[in-house]
């Protein structure tokens, strides 16, 4: 089973929930924690383990070959991402705009744009005492997260066994990297916080999941009784709230030290167990 932990807003607690939930689930299950927040993967800060393998990851970028080019500019015309520009009998390629779709390369009548591999990041596999952690990390200055997210997932897919639970710690937002991260999961947990910003971005995330037809539920982090608009919204939209993680300075202190919070907080442990039960009920439904 694959579970994505996503959010509209950044900083709502995706990684906090991912590492703590993964650790709790790992007490009774085989768990893979997958850090897909490739611009700044940080799940490993909370877990101690050994690096098992490290692989460079590449993206394919066209390279202009001057000799055979007739300057018909077909490549410029077909590029949806404006990654090519024809100027003074020269085709300029902008690698950071390229989405590696091959259109220019395939449709060039004189094969003047062959594709070449360019390193974009790294996939790492760590073995922890109780679980496995796989992360993708983009190189500095790289902008295209989607391809690395996809390659990191492919790496995981080869290792997953039938009963393994994979927890995908997703990037924030609702754009292409998030879509790539959640598109083949069985369930999405949207983490939010009870603030106007949290609510605004939760609505965007809910809209995204509905378009993708993904089943989802909400976890409210930093819960206190002061702002009930997230709850009112979820109730009016028939969205299940799976857990509420309390707003507690002691938890923030633990987090900032890189510790797991559920070991020291009964209420957090209890909330995580609710999520665990919920996930178990999903598996039962799946089997039935």
């Amino acid at each position: 089973m694959k579970i994505a932990i996503a959010s509209g807003k950044g900083g709502t607690g995706k990684t906090t929930l991912s590492v703590n939930l993964a650790s709790l689930l790992a007490q009774k299950n085989s768990v893979f924690l997958v850090d897909l927040d490739v611009e700044e993967p940080n799940a490993k800060l909370f877990l101690a383990g050994e690096l098992l393998s490290e692989e460079p990851k590449y993206k394919m970028i066209p390279k202009w070959s001057e000799e055979s080019c007739t300057f018909c500019q077909k490549c410029v015309e077909v590029c949806n991402y404006h990654a090519l520009l024809g100027i003074a009998n020269e085709i300029l390629v902008f690698p950071n705009l390229c989405h590696s779709c091959y259109a220019c390369s395939e449709l060039c009548p004189t094969q003047s744009l062959p594709m070449f591999a360019q390193k974009m990041g790294t996939a790492r596999h760590y073995v922890m005492p109780d679980m496995e952690l796989i992360e993708g990390e983009l190189d500095l200055g790289e902008e295209q997260a989607v391809s690395l997210i996809s390659q990191t997932k492919t790496y995981v897919d080869k290792l997953l066994l039938k009963d393994t639970i994979a927890i995908y710690d997703c990037p924030p937002g609702t754009s292409c990297p998030v879509i790539e991260a959640v598109k083949d999961v069985d369930f999405v947990i949207l983490v939010t916080e009870p603030t106007p910003f949290g609510l605004n971005d939760l609505k965007l995330a809910v809209e995204t999941m509905r378009v993708l037809k993904k089943p989802f539920g909400v976890v409210v982090n930093r819960y206190d009784a002061q702002d009930d608009r997230v709850f009112a919204y979820c109730e009016s939209e028939n969205i299940e709230i799976l857990a509420k993680i309390p707003n507690d300075k002691a938890l923030a202190v633990l987090y900032s030290k890189g510790a797991l919070i559920y070991h020291s907080s009964k209420s957090v442990k209890c909330e995580l167990e609710k999520i665990s039960c919920f996930l178990k009920s999903l598996t039962c439904k799946e089997r039935a």
Binding site: Y81, H82, A83, L85, I87, A88, L92, F94, L97
Partner: peptide, 14 residues
């Protein structure tokens, strides 16, 4: 354009 507006304007200037 979602991406690549800058190069397009630069091209107009040239």
């Amino acid at each position: 354009h979602e991406h690549g507006a800058g190069p397009t304007v630069a091209k107009i200037l040239i």
